[in-house]
Structures are given as C-alpha cells and as structure tokens.
Amino acid sequence: MPNLKELSKKPARLTGGHRMCAGCGAPMVVNWVTKALKEGDKAVIANATGCLEVSSFLYPYTAWKDSWIHSAFENAAATISGAEAAYNAMKRKGRIDETYKFIAFGGDGGTYDIGLQSLSGAMERGHDMVYVCYDNGAYMNTGIQRSSATPFGADTTTSPAGKVVPGKQQFRKDLTQIMAAHNLPYVAQTVAPVPGTKYMFDLYNKSEKAIYTKGANFLNVLTPCPRGWRIEAATELDVIKAAVETCWWPLYEVENGKYKLTYKPAEKKPITEWLKLQGRFKHLLKPGNEHLVEKIQAEVDRRWERLLELCGEKEIAKAEVAASNK
C-alpha cells in the first residue's frame, strides 16, 4: 500500500486550471491514475470526446503534463494503438530513448457504446496500453442522456421518468466482464478514491498494476457526476461508498483470467442505501414502486453471487464453515 504522504509529494500530471464542474469525479480519477506512473516515465494520453476532453485543455491552457490527443468520440483506443505501434517501431530502430506509457481515457458513452468496437480491437491486438473508462453512467457532456452504462430506473433526458415509464428500462451492460472475456493480462473494476476507507488506494494500486503489466489492460472506474446523478457535490463520496457497500459496484480484478475480490463489505447493504442518495432515482422510492426496487435488488444479488463464484469466494466460505465445524 502506498504512503499518502509520499504520494502527495509526487507531482500531479493533471494539474489545476481545468474547467470541469465542481465536484466532478473525472479529474480526481485521472490524477490518481497518472500518479501511478513512475516519475521518470512519460505518457501519451488519448482522450475520447466527452466532458474530460472538452474541459481540460481550453485554449490557451492545458491541464495535462503529458502528450495528449483527442481524435473523435469512437476511436480513442484505435488512436492510442497507432501511437503505441509507432513508438515500438521507433524504439526498435533506436530513435527514441525514453520510456513511454500509453493510456486512453473515455467516459461510458465513448467506451460502452460508440467506442466499444475500437476498444475491443485494441484489446484483442494486445497493444501495451491501458484503457481507463471513467464511468458516470450517462452522456453528461451533451446534457445527461442514457447510455448502456446507465443504471436501471435512472431518470435521464432520453429515458425520462414519467407516469408510465419509470426511467431507463434496461440493466447496465457489464463492460468489465466483457473486457475480462478478452482474456487480457489485467482487467479491474474500481471507484474514485474515498478517503478513510479500506479501498482508498484501490484505484492507485490497480492503475499501477495496469500500467506496468505488459499488454492491453482495462480499468473501469465508477466516477461521480453531481449534475447527472442529481446529488450535492459534498455527498459524492458517500454515494461512491454506498455503491461499494451495497455491492452495486463491486471492487475486483482479473489477472490472467484469475478473479479476485479486492474488497468485500463486512455486511452487504440493501440497494436502497445507494438509490436514496441520488435524485435520478427519486421516483423509484415513491410508494407503488417497491417492485422496481426489488427488481434492482434481485439483479444486484444475482450479479454479486456470480462474481463471488468467479472469485472462488463460495469455496473459501465453505472451507471456513467446514473448518469451524471441526
């Protein structure tokens, strides 16, 4: 585990002066990911279209300390593939001495939806890179439209909660699982850092592993968006905590096909703990909508149980029970 004091001394590679909203989780996530780079190493960052892209380099300023490219909405992974391949060729010919790392950032729209093809291609080819999805569960840059990462029941401008239809009607796509199915060296799911929790350094540790494990690796990071989630910025860390403690967003990693839970809540909280904190789910907690909450709870349970199985947690639990019975 890194030491917070030492970490704080490492210079930030995404500096202040960007124009993200107050309370936006994206710059915090980018900062922790890029802090995991060794100080002497350089990075090429590709950024899909999105809030992070439009707000972090407004002329004549840039908040990025590293080389940075935005190409389009659907192709950050392909763009960084090209950069990585060219770097390898130059390195082979002895035309470049420094060590470069290749990192792509995309929101959930640019990753789960329009960018999925380009992401899958880059992962399959196995470029030495990390793709980081900062998942805030909707197209926030164009004003909160649903994406395939938007949770069931959430109110967005294209899945409006009304008298007849109570928000989005589909459960979110499990992108981390899709990436795991690419059989990559390293795939992990994590959250924006929450101080004072056991998983405060989860993002940092996973970033370090992803960046310094050779091959194409993937990180899916739950990232708060006060505007889209309809929350006060001051409460966002509680909301993230609730996502983890209710097992709505489990923290785990898949290293060479081996699943491992990186945090297991002592007591799994009911899903209402996560729903009640956010305005986008307000309608779900009104009388008459209990069945919707049950439906969400059942799906969270199903996915959690399956993950426990994949992580071998069920066998561990069985062994523990057997041991205590002896």
Partner: peptide, 29 residues
C-alpha cells in the same frame, strides 16, 4: 444518438413519441 446541437430533437422525441404510440430508441452510435 446525443450530439450537440441536435440533442434536443432526440430528447423531445423520447418524450413525445410514446404519447403517439410511436417508438423512440437511443442507439449506441
């Protein structure tokens, strides 16, 4: 699919079409 400056068209279609027994779908691209 959301894109500035046309997004309001999709947003309104999602709101209005169901009232006319029509169908709005947001696609992946």
């Amino acid at each position: 699919y959301p894109i500035t400056p046309s997004t309001e068209i999709a947003e309104l279609a999602s709101l209005m079409l169901p009232k006319y027994n029509g169908k709005f779908i947001q696609m992946e691209d």
